[in-house]
């Protein structure tokens, strides 16, 4: 019971994939122009993450160690295609606005990283909880950014009526995405510093390697060199 609680807390707060670990940034910025798109993207990525976690945990004993990465990729790509076609068939407007970013879930580092770091080592139930909580962390982050950008940039929330005229259009454009994300990340870090007394000093390069599934490969390479 305690472990479940720990996994949930870690996914949503302590190791929030986007805001703390800095992985999966592309959809985080690109699909947050409106809150609706953000919800769609968040749900799609959570679905793929949870399903691939479950399946990989299920077959973890029969996967030969050397080819685990290609197998993870095939599993993730399969679920991504399922999501892609389902959205195309049942939510055509969402598929138009998310465009190429749905197929790109396959290279979202969060999913491969969780498969390698968690699902291939833990049982099905824990992997399921981990998928939901990591996906939840991503979902939360992208929806917060989506609401901020939509509110400031088009003056609406979830496609409602315009709350005020003359919104700051820049917020839905690319520069606004970077700006809003920068502010959100700074605030998160401020809160983190306040809550957790010991301040972690995150150096620049390795923090993006932390969650990366290829970290071990890079380390090995550096050692050999």
């Amino acid at each position: 019971m305690r472990k479940i609680f720990e996994i949930i807390l870690r996914g949503i707060l302590k190791e929030n994939p986007v805001l703390i670990m800095m992985i999966g940034l592309c959809p985080f910025l690109a699909c947050s122009t409106t809150a609706n798109d953000a919800v769609g993207m968040g749900l799609a990525a959570t679905f793929v993450l949870t399903c691939s976690n479950i399946l990989i945990s299920l077959i973890r004993r029969i996967i030969p160690h050397n080819i685990r990465i290609p197998i993870f990729i095939v599993v993730i790509a399969t679920f991504t295609t399922i999501v892609d076609y389902t959205i195309k068939a049942y939510f055509p407007t969402l598929s138009e606005s998310l465009g190429v970013f749905i197929p790109l879930i396959v290279v979202n580092c969060i999913i491969l990283a969780r498969a390698e770091a968690f699902a291939s080592k833990n049982n099905i139930f824990y992997s399921f909880v981990d998928g939901i909580s990591m996906g939840g962390g991503f979902f939360l982050a992208i929806v917060i950014l989506g609401i901020i950008r939509e509110l400031l940039g088009s003056g609406t929330i979830f496609g409602s009526k315009e709350l005020f005229s003359y919104p700051a259009v820049i917020m839905v454009l690319p520069p606004g995405g970077f700006l809003a994300a920068g502010v959100v990340i700074t605030i998160t870090k401020y809160i983190e510093n306040k809550l957790i007394k010991k301040t972690k000093i995150i150096s620049n390069l390795p923090s993006s390697c932390e969650g990366c599934s290829l970290k071990s490969t890079c380390m090995e390479f550096l050692k050999n060199k």
Binding site: I63, P64, I67, I71, V74, V75
Partner: peptide, 12 residues
Amino acid sequence: MIIVLFIVCCFS
């Protein structure tokens, strides 16, 4: 290795 990869690909 080949067999496992092949089976996974077939399934997908």
